[in-house]
Design a protein around this nucleic acid. Structure first.
Lengths: 260, 260
DNA sequence: GTCCCTTTGTGAACCCATGCACAAAGTGGG
DNA sequence: CCCACTTTGTGCATGGGTTCACAAAGGGAC
């Protein structure tokens, strides 16, 4: 999907004429030139809103209320409105938000109006799955390289790309303008690769390896750990079944002390 | 790895004798029988500590200070101590925490001393990767079934398992005691599968499909969305490069208003 | 036993996030 | 033009999470 740059819907054709009210808006803007402090929690939800909005655009909806959009994204409507208010005042009271316009504004805020070259390092099962994952290209991300250390997989063709040797890492990053690296290597190799990637100038890493990476100040790391997610589920599942069967097994320490 | 049930290290062989101090501990326990309110943020970090501790146990460390463990897990030491204090008072002042004992306590709290049967629904690239992911079995999770709707993949052998048809879903869940389901289906199928899974009695779902699932009260859902993670990275990356080049492109709305 | 050193466990202050509730602002009908 | 209705944007209260800083507790030397 390509993101166009539509005009604000509530000011369609009236190019020159602005009411006193509109003037107030425009004049107040410079004093608050887009708060450069969007809360992290809000940023994490913007992609969610974006996805819901894209679905609505496909179904042909022109506008949407905070109530409906919040329901589609699975959040509270007050939270949604507060989140959107951090980007600016893009709604119309009594009507709602213009779907296309809001898609554009969120996309711009997230930096999706440009396209990002991504390199995937580690072409095992997971790396392969990521390379084939359709959700990337559709949102401004382009897989620009697949790299691996194993001579066995180097040269394979996956998702239309040639798997290159890890020795090419720095060259690939420099030449293809890679700014985001996805780490899907074994845990043991991750830190080493991360060091090289950072040295090559990359400051955004998505890490799938189950290790805590140490990187210099200014480098952003997000991590996805499949087994951690399962462990959190197991915790809640245990609590639920405990409650049914009447408390935990009470296999606490010091069993001898209970006899007192 | 199997988690044994070691005795508390500071009370090794002295079975019957307890000092007044130890008695105080034991007696106070029932009045606070393990706070059944461990903060969510803490639960999310316990797997991290567990992983770090396992690494230390493999390297033969007997005890570890909160400072060292926190560094290994990539968190603040005060946070680590507060997190652990929610489980109970398992450290020894002046010494630190006994590695094996803490592994046992965290494992027990997370419910990893039992093993969980997991079913993976959707055997595309991602499902395949998950099935082969070693991090599951090593932590109390056992992949008990792989299910898919595509007759093309049904019957395939992946990671030692036979891919079964989605029609078997309810039977498999019931017969093999599946309590956690991993959804790796296309987005369009996810809600439908979720409904069936919930109807079959499952209350814990790990969702990889990029949709907001709606489930009844009491069902826990965790979601992992690869493209959302990338979008968050893109946001920060954009901010970083904006700062270098001196502010954003300022492609704001109402370009005509700027002329005033 | 006493002293000193190390490290835990936690009170308290602070910060961020959530959600309520409502005034402000816009639409549409008559 | 006026009124009734809808929906946004936000002030404020509440709560949870993080961090600091320190008293309490244990170990070890002598």
């Amino acid at each position: 999907m390509t993101v166009a740059s539509p005009r604000h819907p509530s000011r369609p054709g009236r190019a020159g004429r602005l009411s006193p009210l509109e003037l107030r808006h425009v004049i107040r803007r410079p004093s608050q030139p887009r708060e450069r402090g969007i809360p992290e929690a809000t940023v994490a939800r913007l992609p969610l809103y974006l996805r819901a909005l894209n679905g609505m655009a496909e179904r042909g909806l022109a506008t949407v209320s905070s109530e409906d959009l919040a329901a589609a994204a699975g959040v509270n409507s007050a939270k949604l409105r507060k989140d959107l208010s951090h980007l600016g005042s893009y709604g119309t009271r009594g009507v709602g938000y213009d779907v296309e316009y809001l898609i554009y504004q969120i996309s711009r805020e997230l930096g999706l109006t440009q396209d990002w070259a991504v390199a995937i390092v580690g072409v095992g099962n997971l790396g392969r799955a990521l390379a084939n994952y359709g959700g990337f290209v559709s949102r401004g991300f382009r897989v620009a390289a697949l790299l691996d250390a194993d001579p066995e997989v180097v040269g394979d063709h996956i998702a239309g790309l040639n798997v290159e040797h890890i020795d090419e890492l720095e060259a690939v990053i420099g030449q293809r303008g890679v700014s985001i690296v996805v780490l899907a290597t074994p845990a043991a190799a991750a830190q080493q690769v991360a060091d090289r990637v950072v040295a090559a100038g990359v400051t955004s890493i998505l890490n799938f390896a189950p290790v805590v990476l140490s990187v210099p100040e200014g480098v952003d790391i997000r991590k996805v750990d499949l087994s951690i997610e399962l462990q959190i589920l197991a915790f809640h599942e245990q609590r639920k079944t405990d409650r049914m069967t009447g408390g935990p097994a009470m296999a606490d320490e010091w069993p001898e002390a209970v006899d007192l």
